[in-house]
Amino acid sequence: MRIGEGGGVSAASVVVTSYNYGRYLAAAIESALDQTCPAEVIVVDDGSSDDSGQVIARYGRHLTPLLKEHGGQASAMNAGFRLSKGRVIVFLDSDDVLSPTAVERAVGVFHDPQVVKVHWPLWVIDEGGCRTGRVLRPVLSEGDCRDAVRREGPYGYTWPPTSGNAWARTFLERVLPIPEAVYPANPDLYLCALAPLFGRIGTVPEAQAYWRDHGANASLREPFAFRLAAAVKREVHCLGVLRDRCRELGLDVDHAAWVDHAFWHRVHRAVRDIDPVIPPWEAFILVDADEWATDEVVTGRRRVPFPERHGRYAGPPADDVTAVRELERLGDAGTRFAVFGWPAFWWLKHYTGLSDHLATHARCLLMNDGLVVYDLKPEGRARRER
Rank of each mutant, 00 (worst) to 15 (best):
D254T: 13
Y59T: 14
P113N: 15
L67W: 12
A283S: 15
N165L: 09
G128C: 00
S355V: 09
K117Q: 14
P187V: 05
I274E: 02
V139T: 12
A314V: 05
I278A: 02
V182S: 03
T158A: 07
G164S: 09
T335L: 03
P316T: 09
N186C: 04
G8A: 12
A79F: 00
A181V: 07
P160V: 06
I29P: 04
W342D: 06
A344W: 00
R134P: 05
A293L: 02
R243K: 06
F171K: 14
G202F: 03
G164M: 03
A293H: 06
A256F: 04
V9N: 10
D273I: 07
R137F: 00
V16P: 08
D260I: 06
V204P: 12
G133F: 07
V55P: 08
L197R: 04
A185V: 06
L98T: 15
L122Y: 01
F226H: 11
R131G: 12
R169P: 12
R312P: 01
L354A: 14
L136S: 07
H237W: 03
R309E: 12
S355Q: 13
E235K: 05
G22E: 07
V55K: 08
L33R: 03
Q114N: 15
V236H: 11
F337Q: 12
V44K: 02
A230T: 06
I274M: 09
G4W: 13
R247G: 01
W159G: 00
V103S: 09
G202T: 14
E40I: 06
A257F: 01
A293S: 05
L194A: 03
P280L: 03
S94W: 08
L140Y: 04
D369M: 04
I178W: 00
R384A: 08
E326M: 10
G331K: 01
D254R: 13
H361V: 10
S75E: 01
V259H: 03
G143W: 04
W167H: 11
V97E: 11
V118P: 14
V287L: 02
W258M: 01
A32G: 12
D95V: 10
A209R: 08
E5M: 08
E379M: 01
R200T: 15
E40P: 04
N186F: 01
D51H: 13
D375V: 10
E326D: 15
R363P: 06
H62D: 14
H70P: 05
R134N: 10
C130R: 14
V9T: 15
G202Y: 07
A289Q: 08
D290W: 01
A166M: 10
F224D: 04
T360Q: 15
P317I: 04
P138R: 02
D112W: 13
Y157H: 11
N217P: 07
H70S: 09
R384I: 11
T294Q: 06
E206R: 14
P205Q: 09
C37H: 13
V175P: 08
E127H: 11
A168T: 13
A181Y: 01
L371M: 05
G240W: 02
R309P: 06
R200W: 05
T360S: 14
A216G: 07
R245S: 03
V253D: 00
G86D: 11
S94P: 12
N165C: 14
A185L: 02
V339E: 07
A359H: 13
A26M: 07
I29D: 04
C37P: 03
D126H: 13
L376H: 05
A79S: 09
V41R: 04
E282P: 06
V15N: 07
G129V: 10
R146Q: 10
